[in-house]
């Protein structure tokens, strides 16, 4: 009798073990994925090839800026989220091509292509060591994606075995400004 129980127990244990392994074995994409470097606003975070400091988050319903000599105004069905940040290459010249606004629900918003040509956009020019760039990341997100978001900065959209800086953004952001003129923005 006890032999039957022992066999049954071994079977259950084996099944549990297999299911657990199947569920919780990290996938190839996770093993070779980004190496997170977590921090907060105002902290300088130094990754493998660049360092970044997020300074401030601004929200706006409309943006106005000058691009290629033309006055441009952009409105949105959601809200524009601006992050003022400082980027520097470390230790060699490098392009930091990816900034992502990850909402508390995990939705990833790539920096908006609708503001192309706006002044002081980060991620457009190459970074040089010793020459930090201070500028803006601009995102377009739904209102419910604003609170408790994370800013992801990396050299590419899906870094493989490379640094991804993850900056925690305010859990309770301000009320969006009706309009922000990027030409009049104070960066310092």
């Amino acid at each position: 009798m006890s032999g039957v129980f022992a066999k049954l127990g071994a079977l259950v244990l084996a099944v549990m073990l297999l299911v657990g392994m199947q569920r919780y074995t990290p996938s190839y994409a996770e093993i070779t994925g980004p190496i997170p470097l977590k921090g907060n606003l105002g902290e300088t975070l130094t990754g493998r090839i660049f360092s970044v400091r997020g300074d401030k988050v601004l929200l706006a319903e409309k943006l106005r800026f000058k691009a290629y000599g033309r006055e441009v105004e952009r409105d949105t069905g959601g809200v524009f989220a601006l992050v003022i940040a400082r980027l520097e290459a470390q230790p060699a010249s490098v392009n930091v091509g990816s900034a992502i606004w990850r909402s508390a629900q995990g939705v990833r918003f790539v920096a908006s292509p609708r503001v192309q040509g706006a002044p002081r956009l980060l991620g457009t020019d190459r970074l040089e060591p010793g020459l930090p760039q201070r500028g803006l990341f601009i995102f377009e997100v739904p209102r419910e994606a604003v609170a408790g978001a994370t800013l992801l900065v990396a050299s590419s959209r899906w870094p493989r075995l490379d640094t991804q800086v993850e900056i925690a953004l305010p859990a309770k952001p301000d009320i969006p400004a009706p309009l922000i003129d990027l030409g009049e923005l104070a960066y310092e």
Binding site: P91, A92, S93, R126, P129
Partner: peptide, 14 residues
């Protein structure tokens, strides 16, 4: 072809 500082920092051509 890059420029290298004594501390190891490197600048690529622009």
């Amino acid at each position: 072809l890059v420029l290298e500082a004594p501390d190891g920092r490197r600048w690529s051509p622009q």
